[in-house]
Amino acid sequence: MRRIGDTAIAAVTVLALGTGVWLLGPGTGTPPQPSAAEGRPDPGGAHGTAPALPASPPTRVRIPAIRVDAPLTGLALTPSGSLDAPPPAEKNLAGWYEAGTTPGDTGTAVVAGHVDNTDGPAVFYDLGALKRGTTIEIDREDATTAVFTVDAVEVYSANNFPDEKVYGASPRPELRVITCGGGYSRSTGYQGNVVVFAHLRGSRAA
Rank of each mutant, 00 (worst) to 15 (best):
R3P: 02
G5D: 10
D6Y: 10
T7D: 12
I9T: 15
A10E: 14
T13V: 12
L17M: 15
G20N: 12
L23M: 07
G25A: 04
G27K: 09
T30C: 05
P31L: 09
Q33M: 13
Q33K: 12
A37T: 14
A37E: 15
E38Q: 14
P41E: 08
D42A: 14
D42N: 15
H47D: 15
G48T: 07
A50W: 08
A52K: 09
L53V: 06
A55F: 09
S56K: 03
S56W: 01
S56N: 03
T59K: 02
P64Q: 03
V68R: 02
V68P: 00
D69K: 05
D69I: 01
L72Q: 03
L72T: 04
T73G: 00
G74W: 00
L75A: 09
P79Q: 12
P87N: 06
E90T: 14
K91A: 14
G95H: 05
W96R: 11
Y97Q: 05
E98I: 04
T101G: 02
D105H: 11
A109D: 05
A112S: 13
H114G: 02
V123W: 04
L127Y: 04
G128H: 07
G128N: 08
K131S: 15
K131M: 11
R132C: 05
R132S: 12
T135L: 13
E137D: 11
R140I: 01
E141K: 14
E141Y: 06
D142P: 10
A146T: 00
F148D: 07
T149R: 13
A152K: 06
A152S: 13
E154I: 01
N160S: 14
P162E: 09
E164L: 13
V166L: 07
Y167E: 05
Y167W: 10
G168A: 06
P173R: 07
L175H: 04
R176S: 09
V177M: 04
I178D: 04
T179L: 10
C180F: 09
Y184W: 15
R186S: 14
V194R: 04
V195A: 12
F197L: 00
A198M: 03
R201G: 04
R201F: 01
S203N: 12
A205G: 13
A206K: 05
